[in-house]
C-alpha cells in the first residue's frame, strides 16, 4: 500500500480529500493539520505522496514544498490551490512541487493527478533499483553550445556517479564542480572564445556577444565532445572543444595575492583541486580529469 499524507488545516477539507482518495486502489490515507505536523510525519515515516493545502498556520504549503524537496526529494508533493493563488502555484512548481490541483476542481482532477504522480514515482523507483545494478558506464555526448545543457548533464552524471558508488556524497559534489568548470571552460572560452573579462563585464554587452557568437560562424558550428567512463574504481571525464585551444601553463595563478581580484583561472584551479588528475592535450582544447575511489583501489589491492 502507498501512503498519501493529506495536509490541510480544515477538517472538512481533509475529510473531503480523504474520501476521494479512498477510491484509489492501493492507497492508505494519513492526515496532518499543518505543515509542521506534516513534516514531523514525513520525518517519522516518509509517505509515497503528500497533498497539501496552500494557506495554513505555522508552516504554509509553499514552505512545506520547499522543506520536503530539500530534505526528502523522493517524496512528491501535490499542492491544492485556492482561487487567485495561481502565482503561488507557479512558485510551488518552480520550488519542486510535482503538480497542483485547484480546490474548485478537486472532484475532477484529484484522483487522476494522484494516480499519475504515484505511477511516475513507482517508475522512478524502478529505474533507481535498476541503476543500483550498474557497474560501469561509458558515455559519449556531442553537444551544441547550449549552456542550458550543462546543468542537465551535470545532474545526469551526478546520478550515475552516485548509482555506481564512485565516491561519497561530498566527493560527488566536488566531481560535479570540476566537471561543470571543464564544460563551461570548453563552451565559453573554447568554442565561443569569450574571455573571462567579457563574461564578467557589462551584462548587456555580454548577452549581445553571446547571442552573436552562438548564431555566427565559426563559433556556432563548433561542438563539445564529452566522454565519460565511470566505474566504482575510477571516473575519467574528457571534455574537448573545437576552439583554438590555450596554453594552461600561461594562466596566472589565481591564488597569488596579486591576482586574487582578477576574474580568470579559478575554474581550472577548482578542477585541479577536486580531481586526482587533470591533463590537457598539446593544443589545449581537450582536458581529461580522473577521479579515483581510494576505498575501491585499496580493496582491490588487499
Amino acid at each position: 500500500m502507498s501512503t498519501v499524507l493529506v495536509v490541510d488545516d480544515s477538517a472538512v477539507d481533509r475529510r473531503l480529500v480523504g474520501g476521494m482518495l479512498a477510491k484509489v486502489s492501493g492507497v492508505d490515507v494519513d492526515f496532518a493539520a499543518d505543515g509542521k505536523e506534516a513534516l514531523r510525519k514525513v520525518q517519522t515515516s516518509p509517505p509515497a505522496l503528500v497533498i497539501t493545502d496552500l494557506v495554513m498556520p505555522e508552516m504554509n504549503g509553499l514552505e512545506l514544498v520547499s522543506a520536503i524537496v530539500e530534505q526528502y526529494p523522493q517524496v512528491p508533493v501535490i499542492l491544492m490551490t485556492g482561487k487567485g493563488s495561481e502565482d503561488i502555484a507557479v512558485r510551488a512548481l518552480q520550488a519542486g512541487a510535482a503538480s497542483y490541483v485547484p480546490k474548485t476542481a478537486l472532484h475532477h482532477l484529484l484522483v487522476e493527478t494522484v494516480t499519475d504522480v504515484l505511477a511516475m514515482t513507482r517508475d522512478l523507483f524502478s529505474r533507481q533499483r535498476l541503476m543500483e545494478g550498474l557497474k560501469t558506464g561509458r558515455f559519449s555526448f556531442l553537444l551544441t553550445n547550449d549552456a542550458d545543457m550543462i546543468p542537465t548533464l551535470i545532474s545526469y552524471v551526478q546520478s550515475i556517479v552516485i548509482s555506481i558508488g564512485l565516491c561519497d556524497e561530498a566527493d560527488v559534489i566536488r566531481v560535479c564542480i570540476a566537471l561543470e568548470e571543464a564544460l563551461r571552460n570548453a563552451m565559453f572560452h573554447g568554442n565561443l572564445e569569450i574571455t573571462s573579462e567579457q563574461r564578467e563585464g557589462d551584462a548587456e554587452a555580454y548577452a549581445a556577444l553571446l547571442a552573436h557568437r552562438t548564431t555566427s560562424e565559426p563559433w556556432q558550428s563548433r561542438r563539445l565532445h564529452v566522454q565519460l567512463t565511470i566505474s566504482k574504481r575510477s571516473g575519467t571525464f574528457t571534455v574537448r572543444d573545437e576552439g583554438p585551444g590555450f596554453d594552461p601553463t600561461k594562466l596566472p595563478d589565481p591564488t597569488d595575492p596579486a591576482n586574487l581580484e582578477k576574474v580568470s583561472g579559478r575554474g581550472l584551479l577548482l578542477m585541479r583541486t577536486f580531481m586526482d588528475e587533470v591533463r590537457f592535450n598539446t593544443s589545449g582544447n581537450q582536458v581529461t580529469m580522473v577521479k579515483t575511489n581510494p576505498v575501491a583501489v585499496e580493496g582491490a589491492a588487499a
Binding site: I177, E180, E181, R184, S196, R199, E200, L260, E261, K262, V263, R266, G267, L270
Partner: peptide, 10 residues
Amino acid sequence: GSTLLDWMVQ
C-alpha cells in the same frame, strides 16, 4: 563554482 566566486569578487 567559479561563476559565483567571480560574482563575489565583482
